[in-house]
Amino acid sequence: MNTEIYLTIILIIMIILALTAIHAKDLLSAVIAQGGIGYGLVICFLLLKAPDLAIVQIVAETITIIIMVAVLHDSTRFEMRCPTCRRDIINLTSALILGATLLYFFVDAISVLPPFGEHTLRMSANYVYDAIEKTGATNLVKGVLWDFRALDTLGEAAVLFTTAMGVLAILRLKGRVKNN
């Protein structure tokens, strides 16, 4: 019960920070607010007993903030606004309609979900109870990642590999010149 109260407080802070990030005049404060959202997510993961995700999230969030601050350092700190934007009414109505639709389906769908805190679904129960015997790993996350679902993890490694290749290909300034 305590966890839910803490989670609610953190989620409210995260929503306030998100609104700040959208409406900030200074882009640096927007970046800082966005970092606050990420660190709030870290605390949420810790409260929900997922330290693996929390570690990854804290490292990824720090790197993201560093990269965004570096980008701001090289460009301007202030947003360029178009002076003659008169689409506020259309934007507001479309946002309201979209929000109402999503809320309707969300309320419909939330009655099907299992109650908060009951994690044992039909499929994952097998993983949770047999993992130590079958893989020998005490960290069940690694047992699932590298034994039951190793092919998925290979896909993740391939994504990282492709990212590095893409960055190298895009940023290569001097192309390979053929010798005549």
């Binding site: 330290p51 693996d52 570690i55 990854v56 490292v59 990824a60 790197i63 020998g136 790993a137 005490t138 960290n139 996350v141 690694k142 047992g143 990642l145």
Partner: peptide
């Protein structure tokens, strides 16, 4: 440490690799 102890405590290859790179 994080990368080698991945199978017995939270962490693992990805986190340890990011720390090594940093």
């Amino acid at each position: 440490y994080i990368a080698i102890h991945g199978h017995i405590m939270p962490g693992g290859g990805f986190t340890g690799g990011v720390l090594l790179a940093s």
